[in-house]
Amino acid sequence: MTVINYTTAKRTFKHLTDIQRGRLEEMAKSGNFTQAKMAKELNVSQSTISRELKRGRTRQMSTKRTYYDRYLADAGARAYRENRQ
């Protein structure tokens, strides 16, 4: 008698769309969302949000000539396409 008991679920990976990246940019810019709240809002895992924020982070210069880091959806999408090739 053979009994098969699987304890792991099949993984389902999701890639972010351009619309989701735009919403992520808005949420990151507002500063009112944690990564967990962003993930729940976009229906993806928190690690996906973390990697996307890291991928799309760019250094900007303010008018006072100080630097700050900011997530840009365009930069994230460009890095995603480059990594896929």
Rank of each mutant, 00 (worst) to 15 (best):
S62L: 04
K40H: 09
R51H: 12
T7Y: 05
T8Y: 11
D69H: 04
D18W: 12
R84I: 00
T7A: 00
A36F: 10
A75C: 07
K29C: 06
E82V: 07
T8P: 03
A79D: 01
M27F: 15
K40M: 12
R51K: 15
L16Q: 00
T63A: 11
Y6W: 09
A77M: 14
D69W: 07
Q35A: 06
T8D: 08
K29W: 08
F33C: 05
T66G: 02
R21M: 05
N43Y: 10
R21V: 01
S47A: 08
I49H: 00
E25L: 05
S47L: 11
M38P: 01
F13Y: 15
A79I: 00
G22I: 00
A9W: 01
T17K: 04
E82Y: 02
T58C: 15
S62V: 07
Y6Q: 09
S47R: 10
V3S: 08
G56R: 00
E82A: 10
R65H: 15
R55K: 15
R81W: 07
K64C: 03
M38W: 03
K37R: 08
A36Y: 12
T48F: 02
Q46P: 06
I4Q: 11
K29F: 07
R59L: 15
T48C: 13
K64H: 04
A39I: 01
E41I: 01
T12I: 13
I4N: 11
H15M: 10
S50H: 10
F13V: 09
T17Q: 02
D69E: 13
E25K: 08
V3C: 11
M1N: 11
A28W: 00
L53M: 14
R70P: 00
E52G: 03
T17L: 07
A75L: 08
F33M: 04
Y6T: 07
A36M: 14
T63K: 05
D18V: 01
M27A: 07
L24Q: 00
E41T: 06
T2P: 02
T17S: 12
R57T: 15
Q46R: 09
T2F: 01
M38A: 05
Y67H: 05
T63V: 06
S45H: 15
R55W: 07
L53Q: 07
L53G: 01
T63N: 13
N43W: 11
Y71E: 00
V44Q: 06
A39K: 02
V44S: 01
